[in-house]
Design a protein around this nucleic acid. Structure first.
Length: 289
DNA sequence: AATAGTCCCAACCGCCGGAGT
DNA sequence: CACTCCGGCGGTTGGGACTAT
């Protein structure tokens, strides 16, 4: 693996990024493919990273437009064979399955940065869907289900990170009172939030509080929340996926306006550091409410 | 600083329904 | 009709992160 120290202008090239526990990783949108680049030197005057920040550990990236990056894999399209899988055999458990004459390893457990990059790279070029084929074609030793879950819950560019806001909490409780544990249905009303996230939030926070018999008088607040009518007719409308409009941040109709991330197609939108700054300030403004 | 307890969430599992054959 | 494959969903849990002592 060749390491080429380079200096790059982040303002020009950063289209999106993920971060890993040990080092930042920028995905550069050059030649319609991502290149694996690791940030070796977190520089001075850090700014908080906003989104998408798939990895739990919160790190800072520098506002310096010029960072010292090291090119880890100069090839435009990543292939699994060219990568050293991080923590292979230690963190993730592997299972042997019989695939015809040849045995293939199906990786399980936490996704590595390299796998993420491969998945993002593949979807950015070929689109999503037919997940089993996708997993095979991309060279990922993962099940289609695993790839789908990783993409939908974590890697999609429009996945929102950060705490559930009070408005969102009220909406979740309201919708749950109507629909029960229909997490995916509820999630469709909260742009950028995943069913998994809402489900976790419900179980760890709301359910816990309910068990502690903490009175939760949210109905009156919910009533005042635009788009959260308890009218059954509205429920019916919301039940049709094609007609489902997001209650939070949805288009038109005076719903709560959340900051919108530039979440269009990977291939069509280049995220710049300016985008991140704008998102950051928009989010700050919103969460100050 | 070390340890124990708790919290949180990413990712798995099993089930179900729809589409295709 | 029966079977297989796939996508989607809700429930569960292992383990890292965090907090209290």
């Amino acid at each position: 693996m060749m390491e080429i120290p380079i200096n790059v202008d982040v303002m020009e090239i950063v289209s999106s990024f993920t971060r890993h526990k040990q080092h930042g990783a920028f995905m550069l949108n050059g030649n319609n493919a991502f290149t694996n680049i690791a940030l070796h030197q977190p520089a001075m005057s850090p700014i908080p990273c906003l989104t998408p920040s798939p990895y739990k550990t919160h790190r800072n990236i520098s506002s310096d437009s010029s960072l010292c990056l090291t090119l880890l894999d100069p090839s435009p399209v990543l292939s699994l064979s060219s990568l050293q899988m991080e923590g292979e055999g230690s963190v993730a458990s592997n299972k042997l399955i019989n695939d015809g004459n040849q045995e293939a390893e199906v990786r399980k457990g936490p996704w590595t940065m390299e796998e993420d990059l491969i998945l993002i790279n593949y979807i950015s070029n070929h689109g999503e869907g037919v997940w089993n084929n996708l997993a095979r074609s991309a060279g990922l030793n993962r099940t289609g289900k695993s790839c789908r879950l990783r993409w939908l819950n974590y890697l999609r560019p429009d996945v929102r990170r950060g705490n559930i806001t009070q408005q969102e909490q009220l909406l979740i409780m309201d919708l749950h009172s109507r629909w029960g544990n229909r997490w995916s249905k509820i999630a469709r009303q909260l742009p950028g939030r995943t069913d998994n996230e809402i489900k976790n939030y419900w179980r760890t926070r709301i359910q816990k509080r309910a068990k502690q018999s903490e009175p939760m008088d949210f109905r009156s607040n919910v009533e005042a929340c635009p788009g959260s009518s308890h009218d059954d007719g509205v429920n019916d409308q919301l039940s049709h996926p094609a007609e489902e409009q997001s209650i939070v941040g949805g288009g038109g109709g005076g719903g709560i306006q959340l900051p919108q991330f530039p979440c269009a197609e990977f291939t069509e939108h280049i995220w710049t550091l300016e985008d991140l700054w704008l998102m950051q300030s928009a989010a700050d403004d919103y969460y100050m409410i």
